[in-house]
Design a protein around this nucleic acid. Sequence first.
DNA 1: TGTACATCAGTGAACGCGCGTTCACTGATGTAC
DNA 2: TGTACATCAGTGAACGCGCGTTCACTGATGTAC
Lengths: 249, 249
Amino acid sequence: VLLKLGNALEIRQDGRMPPATARARARAEITREIVDAGKRQLAEVGAAGLSLRAVAREVGMVSSAVYRYFPSREQLITTLIVDAYDGLGAAVEHAEAPVDRDDLRGRWRAAGGAVRAWALAHPHEYALIYGSPVPGYRAPEDTIAPATRAALVLIELLVDAQAQGRLVQDPPTTVADAALRADLELLRDTFRGVPDALILRALVGWSALFGLVSFELFGQFQNVIAANAAFFAVTLNELATFIGIDAAG
Amino acid sequence: VLLKLGNALEIRQDGRMPPATARARARAEITREIVDAGKRQLAEVGAAGLSLRAVAREVGMVSSAVYRYFPSREQLITTLIVDAYDGLGAAVEHAEAPVDRDDLRGRWRAAGGAVRAWALAHPHEYALIYGSPVPGYRAPEDTIAPATRAALVLIELLVDAQAQGRLVQDPPTTVADAALRADLELLRDTFRGVPDALILRALVGWSALFGLVSFELFGQFQNVIAANAAFFAVTLNELATFIGIDAAG
DNA sequence: TGTACATCAGTGAACGCGCGTTCACTGATGTAC
DNA sequence: TGTACATCAGTGAACGCGCGTTCACTGATGTAC
């Protein structure tokens, strides 16, 4: 019995092969269908307007049946959030991975471009995770880890650059504030070897990236910029310099 | 009759002295009350959840009475949006105006700091204008002009800097894309004399500013940065350099 | 100045709607022996 | 392998709720003569 249980757990952990019983298989499939319907709902009415009843209708079940899969609307939204972070993270990883490891700027451009491309392709999922918080919804902890996935690509890039001695610290910033220095202390483990000033720049650059994408997506550039793709491409280059990736790279 | 009408219009235009009749005075006052109640609703449930009935309740009238003042929920939201842009614009102007005109960095810090301070003080109004679009709501044109008010402060600052020859173009960017050059052509009238490359940087810097504020406000910096004010202060300085305001200034 | 009429603010009832969630139920699938 | 029982997915009705908007109405305020 213990052996069997152990096996079942393993199978579920790696998540590759379908679970044993037909019931479990169906459950996984229908859960997937509900989440997909949720995403389509998201695209139509946004997170605030997302309703379990509409999702149920789209999946073709009665509204109460959804409760066999998600205990509440809140839980469905949490799943959608985690899914969105994961989708963005995967997109960034897949765009950056094939670039020559030594082409630092190329890697940055690939990662940044993937953020924008994913956002344009999934505007409501983007709005869900980077727009205004959903009213009445409080994100649980399960949400934190997936949120960092995309950022890790940038961090790896900077760590590589630093290791190669190709991270440029143009006007070296000094951090006077003690509290901020404490924050940086904690970040040093993650940014192995990257100097404080450039950790700060990385945070600014990362925020700037999402600021630009949000401005474009939420219409703030209307009547200002029409050539959005070209503008973003130029911008990525400027930001690369800003965060310290040397031009030669 | 025409003269009287003319007078009435003038009085309403400068908006200083209260309109003549008691009825008109009451109307203006109650309109204000409704808008204020709308803002409070906004702070409680967000734009998506804002309901005319709740607003009516708070003002102490029956829900249908609100329709004497706003023809629909949509119109109320439009008013709130315009109000928010105006509030932010005024805050930025008032923060930047008293700074010595020659202290370019000081002006930028004042303007940027005002954006953050206003956003922290009015998080839901900020979310209304810079967060995800309100589902089912399409912003009318009345919204465009107020939206630019805050940005004009930055533009004036850059125009001044350029006039004084104190705008630094560090690694001069060249814009190859024709469509983007066309965009810049149109922006040149507004950015009198500021070189193209720095117009682009200004747009990036402005987006970055709001990206940072959004990240802080929407919780993206949770578990990353705790000393938000200090971080923002350092950041403003870095962005000043980025957009070309010389360090001496 | 006083009167007759028009305008307007606010009421209360009603319309039709969709929502999240609970609950007792039926019938199918899975498990233990 | 076959049977008895337990688990589970899905149903349909119901709960109590709040929403935006319309409409005929009353009574107060403003206007023209």
